[in-house]
């Protein structure tokens, strides 16, 4: 350890959070977030869902993959299992992982339901919820869901973390 250089993951104030998602922060590019909100608005009043992949271990969401809601429901979403297999394999081949799993609630708040918590099967992912119940404003919140425990985290919106 070099003296004076904070180790990643410490609670050292200041610079540590600028890149990547150290503990309870989701850092996301505004262009990706805008595209997620646009997807949710487009599918409203049905729930929309998808993934943002990123390089394994980086905790940085870089590649948006909107998924079909196979349930086509206003109150439920489900990835099509075959589409999911294809996307998960593609991430594996690219040495990526699902950094964000997102979906919308179209008549309720952006907070995980009991169903969301029961199904949450990616302990390393940020679960991003978007509520489209208000036509003029969109509620966006992010959570970790591990072993049925929900922890809300800060959403840190940045511009162009990734070079075009």
């Amino acid at each position: 350890m070099t003296p004076g250089v904070p180790a990643v993951g410490t609670a050292t104030p200041g610079r540590a959070k600028s890149h990547g998602n150290v503990r309870h922060v989701l850092t996301i590019d505004s262009a990706i977030l805008d595209a997620i909100v646009a997807h949710a608005r487009r599918d409203h009043p049905d729930e929309a869902c998808g993934v943002v992949a990123g390089p394994a271990g980086s905790d940085l969401p870089t590649r948006l993959i909107p998924m079909d809601n196979a349930a086509r429901s206003m109150t439920f979403y489900e990835f099509d299992s075959i589409e999911q297999l294809r996307v998960w394999r593609e991430m594996d081949d690219n040495d990526e992982e699902p950094v964000i799993i997102y979906h919308s609630h179209t008549a309720t708040e952006a907070y995980p339901s009991r169903t969301d918590i029961s199904f949450a099967g990616e302990p390393g992912a940020h679960y991003l919820l978007v509520s489209t119940r208000e036509p003029d404003s969109t509620e966006i919140r992010s959570f970790r869901i591990v072993d049925n425990v929900v922890t809300e985290e800060e959403v840190n919106i940045v511009d162009a973390t990734v070079d075009a």
């Binding site: 729930e47 439920f76 998960w88 979906h103 008549a107 339901s113 169903t115 029961s118 199904f119 099967g121």
Partner: peptide, 16 residues
């Protein structure tokens, strides 16, 4: 291949 099913939503669990 085993994957976690990705599903959820505002609906109550029993109904889902």
């Amino acid at each position: 291949t085993i994957l976690p099913a990705v599903a959820g939503g505002a609906l109550g669990f029993a109904a889902a």
